[in-house]
Write a protein that binds this DNA or RNA. Structure first.
Length: 424
RNA sequence: GGUGGGUUGCCCGAGUGGCCAAUGGGAGCGGACUGUAAAUCCGCCGGCUAUGCCUUCAGUGGUUCAAAUCCACUACCCACCA
C-alpha cells in the first residue's frame, strides 16, 4: 500500500470496487493526476445521495489531485437506467438546462477552483450536442459490443422487468464518451462515482482503451445502506436536498441528528473530514454513551456547515437546542426565541386578524397534508401549543398564548415544530 | 399475428353485483418506553363546510334500484403459441 489517500478511503469503507489497484496507485502517484465525477440534472438540486460521491471527489482534491465536476446536460436529457426498474419520463430540454445551472452552482461551492489543482467544471452537452448521429455511431458506437452492453446489470435487470428503450440503452455509451472526451481534453484517466455507476464507468474505461489504446481507471464508493434496510437519504417527504429552499438548513441538521445510532459510524466515515483519530474518539463516545449523541451532533454540525455554512449551522443547532432543551418555552428571551423560530417552517398571521385554529395553522404550514390528518393528531394526543398538550379538535390559540406578543410554537408529535408569527 | 392472464388506495396484495372507502402486510403518522435513536407494545391511516356529503378500484361508455365486482370498446403489462 503506497497511497495514503487510498488507505484512508479503505478505512472509511469508501471503496466498493476499483480497477486494478496497482495500476490505480501508479496513476495516483502523479500528484497532478485528475479525476472526474458526473452528476445528472434529474432535479433542481443535488441531494445527500449525490453528496456521498461528491465528498469523495473533495477528498481527492484535498489530497492534491485535480477534480473535474461534470454536469450531465446531455446525459440528463437521456436518462440513466441504473438502479431503475422502469423507464424514466423525459424532461423538457429547457427544464433540464435550468437544472444544469443550479447544480453547477452547487458543485462550485463544494470544490476549490483556484490554485494549482483547481477544479474544472464541465458540461457534457458541450461536446455531445455538436456531434451528428452519424459521427456518433461511426466514431463511438463502433467500439461497443451490444453483447457486452446487454450484460450490464442496469440493462439486464430491465430486460427482465418490462424492457428498456433504445434511448436509455444508449446511456452507457454517452457516459463512456464523456470519459473519453475528458481524457482527451484534460488527460483525465480516473472516474469515480457511486457503485451503481460501475457499469457506466467501466464502459468508459473500455472505450478509452479501444479508441486511444490507453488505460483508464475506475473507483466506486458503496451506496449507503441504512441499518433498517431502507435507502439512505430518503424520508417520507422525499429526498434531503442540498438547496435550502427545498430542504431547510434546520431540517437538514435534524436529519443527521436523528440518524439511527447504528448508522452514525458509517456516516461519519463517509462524510466527515475529521482525522481518523477524531472520528474514532466520536465513535467511542457513541458506544459509551449513545444517549448523549455527541457523535450525531458532530456529524450534523459538520455536514450542515459544509453545505449551509458555519453561520447557518450554528443557528440551526442553537435553534434546536433552545426549542428542544427548554422545558418552558416562555422562559426564552425574545432574541433567542425569534432566531430559533426563524429556522422552522413558518405560518404568518396578520396582527388584528383572527388567529386560525390549530388544525388550520398546522395544515397551512404543510407539515401535515390534510385537515383530517391534523385533527387526527389532536385526537391521538400529539398536538402541542408552546410545548403544552392541547385537546379538542377545534382548539384555537388565543392572543394571550402569544410569546412576547408575536409568536406561537406549534408542535406535532415529538419532532415537528412550526412557528407562527404575528406580523403587522 | 393467435390464445390466455392481468391493471385495486403511497407500495405489495385480497375482494368477483348490495354488509366496500374496500380484508391483510409493509411504509407512514400519533401514543407508551427512551435519548428529538433502535426494538417492542397500543392506536390511527381518502377528503370535506363531517352523526352527513364528496371522490377513489387503468380509461371510456353501457346493463342494473345498486358495480371494484357484469357487458363493450380503448390503452398498457405479463404468459404460452407463431
Amino acid at each position: 500500500m503506497s497511497n495514503a489517500l487510498l488507505e484512508d478511503l479503505t478505512w472509511r469503507g469508501s471503496i466498493a470496487q476499483s480497477t486494478d489497484r496497482v495500476e490505480l496507485e501508479k496513476y495516483l502517484a502523479d500528484p497532478g493526476a485528475s479525476l472526474y465525477l458526473g452528476c445528472d440534472p434529474t432535479a433542481p438540486s443535488l441531494h445527500i445521495g449525490n453528496l456521498v460521491a461528491l465528498t469523495l471527489l473533495r477528498r481527492f482534491q484535498l489530497a492534491g489531485y485535480r477534480p473535474i465536476a461534470l454536469v450531465g446536460g446531455a446525459t440528463g436529457l437521456v436518462g440513466d437506467p441504473s438502479g431503475r426498474s422502469a423507464e424514466r419520463s423525459l424532461n423538457e430540454a429547457e427544464l433540464v438546462a435550468s437544472w444544469v445551472d443550479r447544480i453547477r452552482e452547487q458543485l462550485e461551492g463544494f470544490l476549490d477552483f483556484s490554485g494549482k489543482n483547481g477544479a474544472i467544471m464541465a458540461n457534457n452537452l458541450d461536446w455531445t450536442a455538436p456531434v451528428s448521429a452519424i459521427e456518433f455511431l461511426r466514431d463511438i458506437g463502433k467500439h461497443f459490443s451490444v453483447n457486452q452492453m446487454l450484460a450490464k446489470d442496469s440493462v439486464a435487470s430491465r430486460l427482465e422487468s418490462g424492457g428498456i428503450s433504445y434511448t436509455e440503452f444508449s446511456y452507457q455509451v454517452m457516459q463512456a464518451f464523456d470519459f473519453l472526451e475528458l481524457y482527451r481534453r484534460h488527460s483525465c484517466a480516473l472516474q469515480i462515482g457511486g457503485n451503481d455507476q460501475w457499469g457506466n464507468i467501466v464502459a468508459g474505461v473500455d472505450l478509452i482503451r479501444r479508441a486511444e489504446g490507453k488505460s483508464a481507471h475506475a473507483l466506486t464508493i458503496p451506496l449507503l445502506a441504512k441499518a433498517d434496510g431502507t435507502k439512505f437519504g430518503k424520508t417520507a417527504e422525499g429526498a434531503i436536498w442540498l438547496d435550502p429552499a427545498m430542504t431547510s438548513a434546520y431540517a437538514f441538521f435534524q436529519f443527521f441528528l436523528n440518524s439511527d445510532d447504528r448508522d452514525v459510524e458509517q456516516l461519519l466515515k463517509t462524510f466527515s473530514f475529521r482525522s481518523r483519530e477524531e472520528i474514532e474518539a466520536l465513535i467511542d463516545s457513541l458506544n459509551a454513551n449513545p444517549g448523549a449523541r455527541e457523535a450525531h451532533r458532530a456529524l450534523a454540525r459538520e455536514v450542515t456547515t459544509l453545505i449551509h455554512g458555519a453561520d447557518q449551522a450554528s443557528k440551526v443547532e442553537a435553534a434546536a437546542k433552545a426549542l428542544f432543551g427548554q422545558a418552558d418555552i416562555g422562559d426564552l428571551d425574545l432574541e433567542t426565541l425569534s432566531s430559533a423560530l426563524a429556522e422552522l417552517p413558518k405560518v404568518i398571521v396578520k396582527r388584528g386578524e383572527q388567529i386560525p385554529s390549530w388544525v388550520d395553522l398546522v395544515t397551512n404550514s404543510g407539515v401535515v397534508e390534510s385537515k383530517s390528518a391534523a385533527r387526527r393528531v389532536i385526537k391521538e394526543g400529539g398536538a402541542y401549543l408552546n410545548n403544552e398538550k392541547i385537546r379538542g379538535e377545534d382548539f384555537t390559540p388565543k392572543t394571550s398564548d402569544l410569546l412576547h406578543g408575536q409568536f406561537l410554537l406549534l408542535r406535532k408529535g415529538k419532532r415537528d415544530l412550526i412557528a407562527v408569527e404575528i406580523t403587522d
